[in-house]
Design a protein around this nucleic acid. Structure first.
Length: 269
DNA sequence: CCTAGACCCTGTACGC
DNA sequence: TGCGTACAGGGTCTAG
């Protein structure tokens, strides 16, 4: 489920609990994720976590001898819990931190991944990614230029990880509502002014969500098992048939690339 | 090259 | 209650 803000919230929650701690050993209960769990993950012994970073929706654990990448897919979650906590059927990997703490990876749909790599360079998963939306690389000029040659709808453009990373289905809906742009318009029709507005909306929506601890739709909980509060601020996502809070017209729903898409065709142009 | 659509997998909600 | 269907936050692969 998690999109960029949820991963960022998880990162901020675990980073200082894990940095400079050792993973004593791991327990892998299910190795069949999006890719098989790397063999090295089974064999981690007393590896010190030097740092934890994020790139797109990937969490990157930095060790002396290499890097561990975790992606949570659609339904993944991480839990920093006491070691004797009851194991759920979808708790696939435990990272034993010490005698009473474990970082537990849970993922019912198993669209996530946990892999080991010696070097981050040459890793295709990371090499083909676009810019970070919360970096200074995101500008109106960047969006304007990238949108010139795209023959796709604006919502697809926003969700294209080769251009900008981390914007998933929920936030693309919210961002386009905030920017007052219809999701099914063609990308090339974006004006420079709209790119400026879009830039601001991306920044504002993502930052506000991070500040509130992410979104909870179904099963997202951050690392302390606390639910994110951004779902209270959702203005358009999952609001089909309800009144737009700005103009009171009914919110509509369609599918773009098989992903549910909500919009107000009075507010959004 | 590019884009749309199928697919990976399990859980839940809903209609009959 | 039970069964079938549609849908769910992501990303990759392939056919056109």
């Amino acid at each position: 489920m998690p999109e960029l803000p949820e991963i960022e919230v998880i990162l901020r929650n675990i980073k200082y609990s894990l940095i400079r701690k050792k993973i004593l050993y791991t327990i892998v209960r299910c190795k069949k994720l999006r890719y098989p769990v790397s063999h090295k993950i089974y064999e981690i012994k007393n590896e010190k976590i030097l740092n934890v970073k994020r790139r797109a929706k990937y969490l990157i654990f930095v060790f002396c001898s290499g890097y561990m990448l975790i992606h949570l897919g659609m339904s993944g979650s991480l839990h920093l819990i006491k070691i004797n906590k009851k194991i759920d059927k979808h708790d696939h990997i435990d990272f034993i931190i010490n005698n009473n703490k474990v970082l537990r990876y849970r993922d019912p749909r198993r669209f996530g991944l946990c892999i080991w790599t010696k070097k981050l360079k040459n890793l295709n998963l990371l090499n083909n990614l676009g810019i970070e939306p919360l970096s200074s690389n995101l500008t109106q000029d960047f969006l304007f230029e990238k949108s010139r040659y795209k023959k796709t709808k604006i919502k697809n453009f926003l969700m294209d990880n080769k251009i900008i990373t981390g914007i998933g289905n929920i936030y693309s809906n919210e961002i386009l509502f905030d920017a007052k742009i219809l999701p099914y318009r063609m990308t090339m029709s974006l004006t420079l002014l709209e790119c400026k507005i879009l830039t601001a909306s991306i920044t504002n929506i993502l930052c506000e969500s991070i500040k509130l601890g992410g979104t909870t739709i179904k099963d997202f909980v951050n690392i302390d098992n606390k639910k994110g509060n951004f779902y209270k601020k959702l203005k358009i996502y999952k609001k089909y048939g309800k009144e737009c809070y700005i103009c009171s017209n009914f919110i509509k729903k369609t599918f773009i690339n098989n992903r549910s898409t909500y919009f107000c065709d009075f507010c959004q142009k």
